[in-house]
Computed example of a mutant assay.
Amino acid sequence: MSTSRITLRRAATVTAVAAGSVLLAAGVASAHVTVHPESYAKGATDGVLTFRVPNEEDSASTTKVQVFLPTDHPVLGVLVHPQDGWTAKVTTTKLKTPVKTDDGTITEAASEITFTGGKIGAGQYEDFDVAFGQLPEDTDRLTFKTLQTYSDGKVARWIEQPAGDEEPETPAPVLELTAGGEGTAPAASKTGAAGTSEAADASDSTARGLGVAGLVVGVLGLAAAAFALVRGRSTRS
């Protein structure tokens, strides 16, 4: 077998491995529990947060999801959208520092939402919609630590916060709070929850699709360059 053919096969193998790694990385990145939209304006009112929970296990189903809401910067007026097959329980906690609003002083806020009774199978995900009355104004982000329990007893703990530019292995869903009305999503209504969720899903899917497509095109470009190089050597020889 000629040297050019051996080199070409090696180039093809490297390209295939690189492309597989790109797609695998994209799949892993999308397997985290996330919150949508990714940002809201500080103090935003009457909105919806969608918690997307994918199943990472091949042989077990997700049967319980616990979302913990921060109480040092509380989310006020929490309401859970009914989810087919699931039962939601909202736990409230007395606030160390009451919050003054136009409607009076709030002394309690939701601290945990537990979803049980349903099932998320392998290769599937579930969106849980949570409406809120008002977001805090005194912080730049909200972290929603989440526990995901599987039918085999395993618990995925999505509780880590990012340190610098590196994403942790099991990151918690994070909502960025912006100033000046930036990042404000449409107000919620009986049909608004679905509309907001669909818009967030479309934007998120498009961004991921473009990112993966760009990476794949880059890999194919490397393959083309390698092929051209090998062909040039073969012609000269």
Rank of each mutant, 00 (worst) to 15 (best):
residue 102 D to S: 03
residue 125 Y to R: 09
residue 121 G to V: 09
residue 135 L to A: 02
residue 117 G to F: 06
residue 106 I to P: 01
residue 106 I to A: 11
residue 122 A to N: 14
residue 85 G to C: 08
residue 118 G to N: 10
residue 97 T to H: 04
residue 95 L to Q: 05
residue 78 V to W: 03
residue 108 E to Q: 09
residue 92 T to F: 08
residue 111 S to H: 04
residue 120 I to N: 02
residue 118 G to E: 14
residue 82 P to A: 11
residue 128 F to K: 02
residue 120 I to Y: 01
residue 103 D to W: 05
residue 99 V to P: 02
residue 124 Q to M: 02
residue 135 L to R: 01
residue 83 Q to F: 03
residue 107 T to P: 11
residue 133 G to M: 08
residue 101 T to Q: 13
residue 79 L to Y: 01
residue 92 T to D: 02
residue 107 T to R: 01
residue 123 G to F: 11
residue 76 L to C: 09
residue 125 Y to W: 12
residue 103 D to H: 14
residue 123 G to H: 11
residue 100 K to S: 12
residue 93 T to A: 15
residue 120 I to M: 05
residue 96 K to D: 15
residue 85 G to D: 08
residue 115 F to L: 14
residue 121 G to Q: 12
residue 79 L to V: 06
residue 88 A to N: 04
residue 95 L to F: 04
residue 101 T to S: 11
residue 129 D to I: 07
residue 82 P to N: 12
residue 129 D to C: 09
residue 130 V to T: 09
residue 94 K to N: 14
residue 74 P to M: 09
residue 85 G to H: 05
residue 126 E to C: 06
residue 92 T to W: 04
residue 74 P to G: 08
residue 84 D to I: 10
residue 95 L to C: 06
residue 89 K to A: 00
residue 120 I to H: 01
residue 76 L to K: 08
residue 107 T to E: 15
residue 135 L to N: 02
residue 102 D to Q: 11
residue 92 T to P: 01
residue 116 T to G: 08
residue 125 Y to P: 06
residue 118 G to L: 11
residue 106 I to M: 09
residue 101 T to I: 10
residue 87 T to C: 02
residue 117 G to H: 14
